[in-house]
């Protein structure tokens, strides 16, 4: 039989355990706390399940092959659909499914059909191309609307070419994109993050070359 005191004790113990438990849960969450405006970890679903892991990781295509503006412009740029077509006018599906169709065609003694994967079909649709890679009459080409992952506020002017030409590696800001199935914002892209890098490289240089990274407000804000 419990006295009033022991009831209190039990309650205290239960509450304490509860508190410790929820604290433990919360601490784990603390790391995930973002102040408003911080979009670190943002990884939106894209209209086409384009895999950077495959293209940049496995196939070792250079970043600047597609993002060609990075060297010359403030925007690295999203490649035009025509750039995709440089390869994908020939590569229309995975090697596996093309071979399987070849096998099947051989068995059925017919010419192999052109295999088109669902994702790549979206590129052809966007260009209004038919299976023979010819323009479909009556169809209007419509560009692919990618979702921007790395968004800076409108009052910040970032210039890719200034950084690329100073040998700042792409992954310094974008992380190991070549491992990402879907691109994710790795860094928090806050002003402090930018400024600290600018401060550091003025001492350390980039890849052994001394640089002069501006710390003026007007380097980014105007």
């Amino acid at each position: 039989m419990l006295t009033r005191d022991s009831k209190l004790q039990t309650l205290t113990v239960v509450l304490l355990i509860g508190a410790v438990f929820s604290l433990a849960t919360l601490v784990a969450r603390l790391g995930a706390f973002h102040i408003p405006g911080n979009q670190q970890g943002y990884a939106p679903e894209q209209p086409i399940a384009f895999s950077h892991r495959l293209h940049a990781g496995e196939l070792l295509i250079d970043c600047k092959y597609c993002h060609s503006g990075a060297e010359t412009s403030r925007h690295a740029g999203i490649p035009a659909t025509s750039v995709c077509m440089n390869c994908h006018s020939i590569v229309t599906d995975t090697l596996g499914s093309i071979r399987a169709e070849d096998e099947l065609a051989k068995e059925e003694k017919r010419t192999a059909r052109r295999m088109v994967s669902g994702e790549l079909q979206k590129i052809y649709d966007s260009l209004a191309l038919d299976e023979e890679m010819k323009t479909k009459p009556g169809k209007v080409p419509k560009p692919i609307e990618w979702i921007k992952v790395h968004n800076l506020p409108d009052f910040v002017y970032f210039n890719h070419s200034a950084h690329v030409s100073m040998n700042v590696a792409c992954d310094r800001c974008h992380g190991a994109v070549e491992t990402m199935e879907r691109v994710r914002q790795v860094e928090d892209l806050s002003m402090g993050w930018c400024v600290n890098c600018h401060r550091t490289v003025n001492h350390t240089g980039i890849a052994g070359t001394p640089v002069d990274a501006s710390l003026d407000c007007a380097a980014c804000h105007y």
Partner: peptide, 16 residues
């Protein structure tokens, strides 16, 4: 959204 060209014009580099 980032909407690229369908066929990139030779003379235009976005941002330049």
């Amino acid at each position: 959204k980032a909407i690229p060209y369908l066929v990139a014009p030779e003379t235009i580099v976005p941002g330049r």
